[in-house]
């Protein structure tokens, strides 16, 4: 695993906006269409993958986010990450039911909390957050300041924002900068 201390992200607070690094997390990308794929995922993770667009499903351990009609990303704070990944990989990828990729080091998760987070994101994001805000567990893939992100609505005014590691420091600096002007 890569050094989770890079990029250097410390907890910061501004006017009703709190930014922090939500790591380490295991993140696994799942792709598949076959019936066996859904059965195996359900059995191993005890979770039903959401089929409705822009939604997510969770249990105590895992959150599964809809990315596209045949693609999901699950994330978890579970420490037994290699065991889960190996089990999924052996049961799905190796048997050709679908594709499992460990993307834990590809994405960095930044947590945003507070009343003004949507206002801040909207300054550089083309996505309309009206419906998103109203529904807990909604997810979206969009652009923030021209950077690809996945946003998960965890709780009211509490978001997990996933950004590619190489863009994370840049986005982190942008978030800090724009939070000061809200």
């Amino acid at each position: 695993m890569l050094n989770i201390n890079y990029p250097k992200i410390d907890k910061k607070s501004y006017n009703d906006i709190e930014l922090s690094l939500e790591e380490p997390l295991i993140k696994i990308n799942l792709r598949g269409k076959k019936k066996d794929f859904f059965t195996k995922v359900g059995k191993i993770l005890s979770i039903i993958l959401p089929t409705e667009s822009n939604t997510s499903s969770s249990n105590e351990k895992f959150t599964a986010m809809w990315l596209s009609p045949d693609e999901w990303m699950i994330y978890s704070k579970d420490n037994n990450q290699n065991i889960i990944f190996d089990e999924l990989y052996n049961e799905i990828s190796k048997l050709n039911h679908g594709s499992i990729t460990n993307v834990s080091d590809q994405w960095v998760c930044i947590n945003l909390k507070g009343k003004n987070i949507y206002e801040m994101l909207s300054t550089a994001c083309p996505f309309d957050f009206t419906k998103f805000k109203a529904n807990k567990n909604s997810t979206t893939q969009t652009l923030v300041n021209h950077i690809d992100v996945i946003i998960h609505h965890k709780e009211e005014n509490n978001l997990n924002l996933f950004v590619r590691r190489s863009f994370s420091e840049h986005l982190w600096l942008w978030l800090n900068d724009s939070a000061k002007f809200i």
């Binding site: 667009s53 822009n54 009609p69 083309p126 996505f127 309309d128 979206t140 969009t142 652009l143």
Partner: peptide, 11 residues
């Protein structure tokens, strides 16, 4: 057709 209404800049 999969995600709903989005801004053209995402496409």
């Amino acid at each position: 057709p999969f995600c709903g209404e989005r801004d053209q800049s995402e496409f």
